[in-house]
Amino acid sequence: MRKTQGVSRGEPFAFSVDGDAIQAYPGETIAAAMLAAEATGFRRDRSGRARGLFCNMGVCSECLVHVREGDVSRRLRACLVPAEPGMTVETGLGE
């Protein structure tokens, strides 16, 4: 739930998470935009169960998502990386 009182943000934009359009504001991390949209699963464990993020400060790696750029897909920590217009994010399997 975004705090709105006393906070002004820039113009929102959309990026994609598992094919769904999610709204983000400039400067928001991928994690913040996903949580604001109630998307709480960031990866799946070996048994296919959804996992959420834990530390929100870069140390636990529970928020690793796949960010696709052209042919290259990187597993990045959603709690550190800002969302960008048109970005393609996939949750799901490990390597």
Binding site: M1, R2, K3, R49, G52, F54
Partner: peptide, 23 residues
């Protein structure tokens, strides 16, 4: 390990920095 469980420090950081209550 259920999504939605996080550290209190991480929760606080969402409020301080991203201006978001994570739930």
């Amino acid at each position: 390990t259920l999504p939605g469980v996080m550290s209190a420090g991480g929760t606080q950081a969402f409020i301080k920095s991203q201006q978001l209550v994570p739930g």
